[in-house]
Amino acid sequence: MAGQCTPEGRDFKELQEEELWELINDNRHKISLDVRPCRVIPYLRQARVLTEVDEDEILTSHKLSNRSMRTSYMLDLLRTQGRNGAVALLDCLMIHYPTLYTQVTGRKPSIEPSRFSGLIKYSELTEYLVRAVTGMQRSCRRLAQRPVA
């Protein structure tokens, strides 16, 4: 399924838990290299598949010495959440990493509200996206104001 990119076929929300985790685990190396936990944790917390304790452990544990290890550990924590963890991760990839989402699922990302899992209410999703865009705009402004060395 991940090799082909077609809009038709089964949506990831129709897949069983094991099929979802198989998709994710088949692409675990790529996800671990590309995904930044600090970028996706706010969505995963809002979807209630990670807790504040999980976030703190992922981001500050001295046992996790690099970003790939942090992301891999985050995937392990999401696995304990079963189907909801997989669906929330894929929703998050659809928003933040559309190219990676396409590689994992074989489908192009969609921003239609009906395409999201329902783990997060549409109003909360809108609020999350507004905060994410605002944060990105602030970061861009700060970068633009930095003196060039």
Rank of each mutant, 00 (worst) to 15 (best):
T6W: 03
G9W: 11
F12I: 09
L15T: 10
E18N: 12
E18S: 08
E19Q: 09
W21Y: 00
E22Q: 06
I24Q: 05
R28Y: 00
K30R: 06
L33A: 10
D34T: 12
D34F: 08
R36I: 07
R36W: 01
R36S: 14
P37F: 02
C38A: 15
R39D: 14
V40F: 10
I41G: 08
P42E: 03
P42G: 06
R45P: 00
A47M: 02
A47I: 11
V49F: 05
V49S: 09
T51F: 07
E52P: 08
E52K: 08
V53W: 00
D54I: 05
D54A: 06
D54N: 03
T60W: 04
S61V: 04
S65C: 12
N66L: 11
N66C: 11
N66D: 12
R67V: 07
M69N: 01
T71W: 11
T71G: 02
L75H: 08
L78F: 07
T80A: 11
R83P: 08
V87L: 14
V87P: 00
A88D: 03
L93Y: 07
L93A: 11
I95Y: 01
H96V: 10
L100P: 02
Y101G: 10
Q103W: 07
Q103D: 02
V104I: 01
T105F: 02
G106L: 00
S110W: 03
I111P: 09
R115W: 10
I120C: 13
I120T: 13
K121T: 15
K121H: 13
S123Y: 03
L125T: 00
T126C: 00
E127T: 11
E127K: 12
V130D: 04
T134D: 15
G135W: 12
Q137A: 14
Q137H: 10
Q137V: 14
S139F: 13
C140E: 14
L143A: 15
Q145I: 04
R146I: 08
